[in-house]
Design a protein around this nucleic acid. Structure first.
Lengths: 129, 129
DNA sequence: GCAAACTAGTGGCAAAGTGTCAATAGATAA
DNA sequence: TTATCTATTGACACTTTGCCACTAGTTTGC
């Protein structure tokens, strides 16, 4: 089935990106972490296929917004020094707002899916009386 | 509360856009319509603040993908001739795939919110033993 | 001890996505 | 006949996104 480029995703699901920042905040709400492990944890949350650069870019952006802060960790590492990110009080507040937003998205999604199934049922009722 | 430009939306909610094409398909699944009424119906679905140009652009893109077809209607109009859009069998199929995708998004959202609340509860339990 | 593989993070670019506004143009109301 | 509403299109700047190459420290295998 050909759907054209509007359907085919480049890299990862189009919905994933909009989840990335809230996902990172949620993970950091749990505990401070560095980018490389966040990459794995984000996948474990169900958001797969991210290029590391995308994660790091989001983290830098979030730091510039003051939602998180980072410090270099040169001791406990299996490679070069790494940044450890931590949620700020502002970041915590932003996460709460984001949770509300996701709740609304959920409601929207529910209404949407319900509409579809209602209409499908009507269709079937008409076709098989 | 200042959250910086990463939080402030331009025009409409950032989640809305990814809903636009499925929303249009859903509405056209119900019945053929022209862009100007789709604009209103999309708002009624809960997706507010769209500039008409965004709707028309999406419709043209969807037509180029073969998900919908249009014809000019010069009779039943309160203004200039208008395009009437109609779902194709391919569009119907795409809508079904999209519904599945939205179901998965819903599950993701649920897991996400559940994680947040679980962790909040643990926090409270620790603070108020 | 040195090459390969793994860990960790950065920078830049092309392409795609998005918001906004102006322009066109027919119909209707004032 | 001017203004307003209906209806659609086009173009532009700006932002987001995917992708890739790059640096560089550490560990592992030979």
């Amino acid at each position: 089935m050909r759907m054209g480029h509007g359907w085919q995703w480049r890299g990862c699901s189009r919905r994933a990106v909009r989840f990335l920042e809230p996902a990172l905040l949620l993970l950091l709400h749990h505990s401070p972490a560095h980018g490389y492990t966040l990459l794995e944890q984000v996948e474990a949350l169900g958001l797969e296929g991210f290029d590391p650069a995308v994660i790091y870019r989001a983290l830098r952006e979030m730091e510039s917004q003051g939602w998180i802060v980072s410090r270099w960790d040169r001791e406990q590492t299996q490679g070069p020094p790494r940044r450890v990110y931590q949620l700020t009080p502002l970041g915590d507040e932003v996460l709460r707002y984001w949770i509300q937003d996701l709740q609304e998205t959920r409601k929207l999604l529910d209404r949407f899916l319900q509409r579809y199934y209602e209409h499908i049922e009507q269709h079937h009722a008409q076709e098989d009386p």
